[in-house]
Design a protein around this nucleic acid. Structure first.
Lengths: 140, 140
DNA sequence: ATTGGTGCAAATGCTTTGCATAAAG
DNA sequence: CTTTATGCAAAGCATTTGCACCAAT
């Protein structure tokens, strides 16, 4: 992965943002420093950097993807009206609900544990055994 | 909400499916019984029925929306390769991870608690006080 | 007879891609 | 020099919408 000015500035701005921006929102910000950058470059780099683990891609709730420069494991809460995402730094096991409301300022409406993994069908397709492909065949 | 044959058959097929189908997948199934139904009708009805609480819309993980004819509260696990969704019937508080793997057959890769609520900004825009709009202004 | 629902096709919105040019190593 | 990244424009998908026709109440 070459270090281009686009990549560097994208990362820098994302890390300073804290607002979990969408690709387009970050694009608007970065354009101020790199007027000729294209949205496609933003998408390509965000995708690549998230694959590299440098940033995190947030794909909750059927909304637009958002990105986070903070890669520590932490929970998020998203607004069902406007889509904003805020951080929730909660210790596991504690009374999550109140911690969530306290640390985010959100009014909690719903919480769902979202599990991800490899389904039995896909497990049988895996060559080695311990890898987690990221895309693949379409669901049946 | 009028009971049209489209609506009736859609609901019937969804309830029998158990596979958390996407709109298009359900469309393919229903087309066998209603060859002239259109995808738009499927989308419109799924949306309406989920608003009515008759079915549940699953909007996890930045993928295509999926729908569930089972409206009991229960968790889901989705495959990061193919997108399939399976049910997880787990008692809260128990050792979720192993329950998840046992009941779903998936290999668990990640679990994230997804909180939804109303952000402070949107709370201040709410007229009454205790409602949960579903869409709204764009994120800033 | 009304009013909501339907099918179709076109439009949308977000994201991805093909391709020729430019920049990094 | 070789290869990857960029910018632009066009394409792609899932989903939504406008509109004229149809059907449920």
């Amino acid at each position: 992965m070459r270090m281009t000015s686009q990549r560097e500035i994208l990362l820098e701005e994302l890390k300073k943002l804290k607002s979990h921006p969408t690709a387009d929102e970050l694009y608007q910000v970065v354009k101020k420093r790199l007027p000729r950058i294209s949205l496609a470059t933003v998408y390509r780099n965000l995708e690549q950097m998230s694959e590299a683990g440098i940033i995190k891609k947030l794909e909750y709730s059927g909304r637009q993807k958002r990105f986070d420069g903070e890669v520590h494991a932490h929970h998020h809460i998203h607004c069902i009206r406007c889509g904003r995402i805020a951080d929730v730094h909660a210790a596991k096991g504690a009374d999550l609900r109140s911690i969530v409301e306290d640390t985010s300022g959100f009014r909690l409406v719903e919480d769902q544990v979202e599990f991800s993994g490899i389904c039995p069908e896909c497990q049988s397709l895996l060559p080695g055994g311990a890898e987690n492909g990221k895309e693949g065949s379409k669901a049946a």
